[in-house]
Nucleic acid binder design. Structure first.
Lengths: 141, 141
DNA sequence: TGACTAATGCGACTCGGTTGCAATAGAATA
DNA sequence: TATTCTATTGCAACCGAGTCGCATTAGTCA
């Protein structure tokens, strides 16, 4: 994700509008670290005194996702979906089983080796993967 | 998971009963490959003319999970939970984005290296991980 | 066969998310 | 600034997956 002015001007040049909720949500995704749930998004907006309806939030999430500005993340231990800004390098998540905080991590050594092995042994052509680590963060150890 | 007679006798020696639904579900998990959704389980039972109520199915899934006979799996692209027999070695899943089939895979080379790197660089102590591969199976390539 | 209680069915409910539709409000134009 | 067009919103009803309380049923043991 670029800076907010660029995003907004790109959107409006395509006929989309810079509404309060849209700009607030884009700002939010530029700021927040780790993937955010719809619930977290709504509570942040509430604190900022942005009035909204949940249907609007979900619709905006779909909109931002379709435009490639955010991407969906599903974590292994929970029901709902989460979203994060889509500008980032390929990364994974560290989920603390104690305090539930979620941190991003970029692996120095990705999974090419494993993916090649899969192709050789099964003929399955890997296009992507999701990898989440569960454990204890430094503070909770 | 052991064979069904052993499981049933172990359960009944602890005061649990060998009901139609319970034995059908244990049989099912011994047979089915790849993690099954509640929906799939119910449709398989229906075909076998086993009458049931969805609350019972969910309760039985909780029961079998608590007893360590099955384990929960959440796949990155879908809402619901899935379950698989818990006897298996640590493994991952190959999810075909085209035909949606799910296969198990045991990696020759697991992620110790990556997990050590995480500990060194962040102090996060990894206790487990989930790793799913998306791609095209041999038949869909 | 009777008694005990684990397991079931039922229906109502929760939670996360979606949809149809009328009302509202950005933004371009006059 | 007023007008117009239509993207966006709020509302309320809805959906699917899963859960719960409670009265009833049915395994199992004596």
């Amino acid at each position: 994700m670029k800076d907010i002015e660029t995003i907004i001007s790109e959107l409006s040049s395509e006929g989309f509008r810079a509404t309060k909720i849209r700009t607030s949500m884009i700002e939010l995704f530029l700021k927040v670290k780790g993937p955010a749930s719809a619930h977290e998004i709504m509570s942040i907006l509430s604190k900022k005194k942005v009035r909204f309806n949940k249907a609007t939030i979900y619709r905006e999430l779909v909109f931002l996702k379709e435009r490639g500005l955010i991407q969906e993340v599903r974590l292994p231990h929970e029901r709902g979906m989460r979203f994060e800004a889509a500008h980032q390098a390929h990364h994974h998540h560290l989920i603390c089983v104690n305090c539930k905080k979620i941190a991003d991590i970029v692996l120095q050594k990705e999974l090419e080796e494993q993916e090649n092995e899969i192709y050789r042994s099964t003929g399955f052509q890997v296009l992507g993967h999701t990898l989440e680590f569960m454990g204890l963060c430094q503070g909770c150890r």
